[in-house]
Write a protein that binds this DNA or RNA. Structure first.
Length: 639
RNA sequence: GCUGUUGUAGCUCAGGGGUAGAGCACUUCCUUGGUAAGGAAGAGGUCGUGAGUUCAAAUCUCAUCAACAGCUCCA
């Protein structure tokens, strides 16, 4: 007999060799019907795998992340079976589950898959699912595995097998389809009741730009048709929050072919929001001892040769600007750090004045590849809420903590509670990509890890995601469609101080090299605005909103009073407009609701006589009548 | 940059080898209306750009630019 421990600490005894499914059945038939996989000693496994010794067990249902992942991974196999049935000779790459659904990379040879093929494939998936085939696991020798896929002619699978060790290779089969896979899988295809192929796209084999481009088929499945329908509605809703769409509807920003791609033009309303964000952070930074500076938009090429950026990015950047002077070259600045290094180094520095915190909303230009451009979140000209902190080794951790505090303060103020803090470290297997000594890297990485741990920040660690000059801590936030974007960033840099030969005089009257922290709580104004727009669905917080109120006269007889109210509110530092169009009140309400104006003030005969306004809150309807002064007080109380 | 899709009025889109259409927005007039679309009339486009095929191209072909999705990249 073996002891099985359940998540609640209960222990029950079973015969050795019992399966997770048997264990589930012993608890209830109901559980056995809905369970998809089980974690045995922390490893997610097939329900049919026997358990031979004492173990802890956790069951995974559709509601769990592990349950969904297993369900979708199994669905990927089913999708492959359907594609193979309809398009014989298709070669298969990999087909993992992703956050929402799964994909399979396929190579259909010279007959590419088109959107017209998709309905038939979806039908086939459902047809195969209804065959109620089991997912059968088998352990296969490397020789047999190679033999199978050689006969099938699938070189992608052969390449995958090549990287595996004999004795660790498993196949899974359902119906007529056998795949190289380490599992786990759900027991049977019958629980897959609804499928939608979401997208087709190119993807390089093994992510390598030099290799073949396969067709990546994105799809999602559900155990109930209703859940699929709801998911598709959710996707549609998310598209409505897209900042590119809202930016146009709310007249926040635009792009112009004549200006150039990736170069946003900020319209008055977008500018109003952005400037308030800037003012907010500038004030906070002053409180925290930052010193604002201003530097030019270009810098001599020599500056970037010194910094090392020319060597690293020069050929992929906006190319140097020539001058009438032979041999003189300037670069549009792609970052502010070198300018700030020059400011730090313009005179000798004493340890007494460290840390020096140099801040600038600096506009930079980077020639991003055309395919990378994306609304406001990936552009070629953008403004960083940049600052560089020059400090001693001993001050590093405290400064890092201070920046962490500021960044979290900023995110909280703007309503971002769903961020991920990512610690980006070197790829330990490819140190050649980075500059600087091992010793400095080790120190910098440790400082970040320690500081994050000290404030109890929940972090994920990403190896290979560091900047080429140092490790960093990034705050990642998702957009309306679930894509992750880096917003705030904090980076430790031992490299630039060295390249610019920056020094300070210590208490020992000797020269020392300061450490540099790059940091930007917003990241860039453009990207932050983009993600902010999506996060609030265009309904900006009251203090940021371009217009806080709109006054809607019931007829043009009340326009004059409307302007008096507007003046009175502006005297209270509130901002808004009068909708004096010759339109019905219903129309004015509708149009201004759609502009996401927080408060609509309706005025007619009654209001004029009583000196009041009838208040309507965005999205919440009529709030009743109050005096103008009372309204002003109420709004100010909400700021 | 790569693969695929798209490009027609300010916006959303229909059409399609014989020189352009709808709704909304806009302008004017009527209406003076009380909590999410009042009525009428009018104006507005060399169909992304450039070549080619054709008696004829917005429509077909090629190139180019831009946008979208994913990949790759992100100082």
């Amino acid at each position: 007999m073996i002891n099985i421990t359940f998540p609640d600490g209960n222990i029950r005894q079973y015969a050795a060799g019992t399966t997770s499914l048997d264990v589930a059945k012993s608890i209830s038939e109901g559980l056995a019907r809905v369970v998809l996989a089980a974690s045995v000693n922390g490893e997610v496994r097939d329900l049919s795998r026997p358990i031979n010794s004492d173990a802890t067990i956790t069951f995974h249902k559709w509601e769990d992340k592990e349950g969904k992942q297993t369900f979708w991974h199994s669905s990927a196999h089913l999708l492959a079976e359907a594609i193979e049935a309809l398009h014989p000779g298709t070669k298969f790459g990999i087909g993992p589950a992703i956050e929402n659904g799964f994909y399979y990379d396929i190579d259909t040879g010279d007959k590419p898959l088109t959107f017209a093929d998709l309905p038939a494939i979806e039908q086939k998936v459902l047809e195969l699912a209804r065959q109620k085939n089991e997912y059968l696991r088998s352990e296969v020798s490397k020789t047999d595995a190679i033999k199978y896929f050689t006969e099938k002619g699938d070189e992608y699978k052969l390449e995958l097998i090549d990287g595996l060790q004999d004795g660790q290779i498993t196949f899974y089969q359902q119906g007529n389809f056998t795949d190289l896979c380490k599992g786990p899988h759900i027991p049977n295809t019958e629980s897959i009741k609804a499928v939608k192929i979401l997208n087709l796209a190119g993807a390089y084999w093994r992510g390598d730009i030099e290799r073949a481009q396969l067709t990546r088929v994105y799809a999602i499945t559900f155990p109930k048709q209703k859940e699929l329908d709801e998911y598709l509605v959710l996707l549609e809703e998310a598209k409505k929050r897209d900042h590119r769409k809202l930016g146009q509807e709310l007249e926040l920003f635009m792009f112009s072919d004549k200006v150039g791609s990736g170069l946003p033009l900020w319209l008055p309303k977008g500018t109003a929001v952005r400037q308030r964000l800037e003012d907010f952070l500038k004030k906070e930074q002053i409180k925290r001892g930052y010193q604002p500076v201003i530097t030019p938009h270009i810098g001599s090429k020599k500056l970037y040769v010194t910094s090392g950026h020319w060597e690293k990015y020069g050929k992929d950047s906006f190319q140097p600007i020539m001058t009438p002077q032979e041999g003189e070259e300037f670069l549009l600045k792609p970052m502010n750090c070198p300018h700030h290094c020059e400011i730090y180094g313009y005179r000798p520095r004493s340890y007494r004045e460290l840390p020096v915190r140099i801040a600038e909303f600096g506009t930079v230009y980077r020639y991003e590849m055309s395919g990378e451009l994306h609304g406001l979140t990936r552009v070629r000209g953008f403004t960083q809420d940049d600052a560089h902190i020059f400090c001693t080794e001993d001050q590093l951790k405290e400064e890092f903590l201070g920046v962490l505090e500021l960044t979290r303060f900023v995110l909280a103020k703007l309503g971002f509670d769903n961020f991920t803090a990512q610690i980006s470290l070197r790829d330990p297997n490819d140190k050649a990509k980075y500059i600087g000594t091992d010793e400095n890297w080790r120190k910098a990485e440790q400082a970040i890890i320690d500081a994050a741990a000290e404030v109890g920040l929940n972090t994920v660690t990403a190896f290979g995601e560091a900047a080429f000059y140092g490790p960093k801590l990034d705050f990642m936030v998702k957009d309306a469609l679930g894509r992750s974007w880096q917003l705030g960033t904090i980076q430790v840099d031992y490299n630039l101080p060295e390249r610019f030969n920056l020094k300070y005089i210590g208490a020992d009257n000797a020269e020392h090299q300061p450490v540099m922290i790059h940091r930007a709580p917003f990241g860039s104004m453009e990207r932050f605005m983009g993600v902010l727009i999506e996060n609030c669905a265009g309904k900006f917080p009251l203090w940021l909103s371009p217009e806080q109120f709109a006054i809607l006269p019931v007829s043009d007889k009340f326009v004059e009073y409307s302007y008096q109210v507007k003046q009175a509110l502006e005297a209270e530092d509130l901002r808004g407009v009068v909708d004096d169009r010759n339109e019905t009140i219903g129309r004015k309400i509708r149009d201004n609701e759609l502009k996401r104006i927080p408060f609509l003030l309706i005025v007619g005969e009654k209001e004029v006589e009583a000196g009041t306004v009838s208040v309507r809150k965005q999205g919440e309807g009529d709030q009743g009548v109050v005096s103008v002064a009372a309204f002003a007080e109420m709004v100010k109380g909400m700021l």
